[in-house]
Design a protein around this nucleic acid. Structure first.
Length: 377
RNA sequence: GGAGGGGUAGCGAAGAGGCUAAACGCGGCUGACUGUAAAUCAGCUCCCCACGGGUUCGGCAGUUCGAAUCUGCCCCCCUCCA
């Protein structure tokens, strides 16, 4: 039953770069790669219904183990029949392990060999998560792709700390893999190692020995400059197998995506498009737009005339400006739809350009065309 | 006509002799946002040739070393009674 397994198929390798066009069979659901995954932390891409996701051609989303663990809890998700039924979403779901919260909730956690103690951000309750817990919760959630529990190392960090952290992340990966029982759920390992080439290589090679279904690249875009960021990719990707998907975690800036695709990354997720949309910033073919500005008060043209999304097809900047000023949820919804569709369409064009062996030209074209600064949006 | 209450920056609203260019909220303007503690957060918001200066707290005139804060008169507004 080939159809019902998890399998990455390399469709075409760009002739002039390491960019690759692939097809990810996620237990019968197909995801074309490179792909961008909208983030739906608490079993919802904020303000959007699954129907919105289908319409914008989102093919896979990310949810978060830590948040769903706290609420509604694994029991509820199990009783619901898994996250797909719970949120009525029919596409593939990847769950992050909680590893990023080890990083982002730094003030409220303590790391030990056994696991991490957190203070719940909801009410301060003391929680303890082990790599095994993370896997068990992800199995209860019923995501299609689970991620190993890791430590996302802050930047900058001393070599010795990173070495110890990587070793621990590797031990956690092994423990998680041994605890993993579901056959209809893939499991990815996460490469850490901060900016140190030998640690990146070591971590990647050790994970590959454990034979995961895919490999994540973590600990990037945590405060380092772009050069350093891309160097970390250079120091990691050569050690990952060709026949498995590579996923750079938490990346959503346009230039970052292009640089990573060029180096052979297949999957991305990021809160950036949805968060900045809610905050009134839009990525458009004419550059960045801040919808709150007064110049849009009577601008009855679409956000992006070149965009095919529901928002751009039906609504004007004046209306979006009005919705934003009045804190109306529809504004958040429409602008989230736009930013997501913008990135998803970018990925569609990226795939097309790889298929035609002109990814590098496409990348240059985008970098020149879009009027964004170094941040990449 | 009589009795009370009140007029503070764009709006609402504190302050009741010096620490007040004046709390706080709203509104407005900037900026931030990359595996979501984020429909969030930070800064600015009387004027100016701005690490300094100039005008303010309904108006005018006083008291005082010093007033948005005390006194007098005047102008508005609100409530109640006739």
């Amino acid at each position: 039953m080939e159809n019902n397994s998890f399998k990455y198929e390399l469709i075409h390798q760009d002739r002039h770069s390491k960019a690759r066009l692939g097809k990810l069979n996620v237990f019968g659901r197909i995801v074309d790669t490179p792909v961008f995954m909208p983030v739906g932390t608490r079993a919802t891409v904020k303000f959007l219904a699954p129907e919105d996701l289908y319409k914008m051609n989102a093919s896979i989303i990310l949810c978060n183990t830590y948040h769903l663990w706290l609420r509604p809890g694994p029991e509820t998700l199990e009783e619901a029949g898994g996250i797909h039924r719970f949120m009525n979403y029919d596409g593939p779901v990847l769950t992050d392990s909680g590893g990023f919260q080890v990083f982002s909730l730094a003030d409220n956690r303590k790391i030990s060999e056994e696991g991490v103690s957190f203070k719940s951000h909801l009410d301060g309750t003391k929680m303890f998560m082990t790599p095994e817990d993370s896997i068990h919760v992800q199995e209860a959630i019923g995501s299609d792709i689970a991620i190993s529990f890791d430590e996302c190392i802050p930047y900058p960090s001393e070599y010795d700390y990173c070495k110890d952290s990587v070793d621990r992340t590797l031990r956690w990966a092994k423990r998680g893999k041994e605890a993993h029982t579901r056959k209809n759920q893939a499991l990815f390992g996460v490469v850490q190692g901060s900016v140190y080439p030998d640690l990146r290589k070591y971590c990647a090679e050790e994970l590959v020995k454990m034979d995961f279904d895919g490999y994540s690249i973590g600990g990037t875009s945590v405060g380092e400059d772009k050069q350093t960021h891309y160097k970390m990719l250079d120091d990691t990707l050569p050690y990952l197998p060709e026949d498995k998907p590579r996923y750079e975690m938490g990346i959503g800036a346009i230039n970052d995506i292009l640089e990573a695709v060029e180096r052979g990354v297949d999957m991305f997720d990021c809160v950036l498009p949805t968060r900045i949309a809610r905050h009134g910033t839009l990525m458009t073919s004419r550059g960045r737009i801040s919808i709150r500005k007064n110049i849009y008060k009577n601008d009855f043209t679409p956000l992006d005339p070149d965009c095919d999304c529901e928002c751009c097809r039906n609504y004007t900047k004046a209306y979006l400006n009005h919705l934003f000023r009045n804190d109306e949820g529809l504004g958040s919804r429409l602008m989230s739809i736009h930013n997501l569709r913008f990135l998803i369409r970018l990925m569609e064009e990226i795939r097309q350009s790889i298929a035609e062996d002109r990814f590098l030209e496409f990348k240059e074209e985008i970098l020149n065309k879009y009027d964004f600064d170094e941040r990449g949006f």
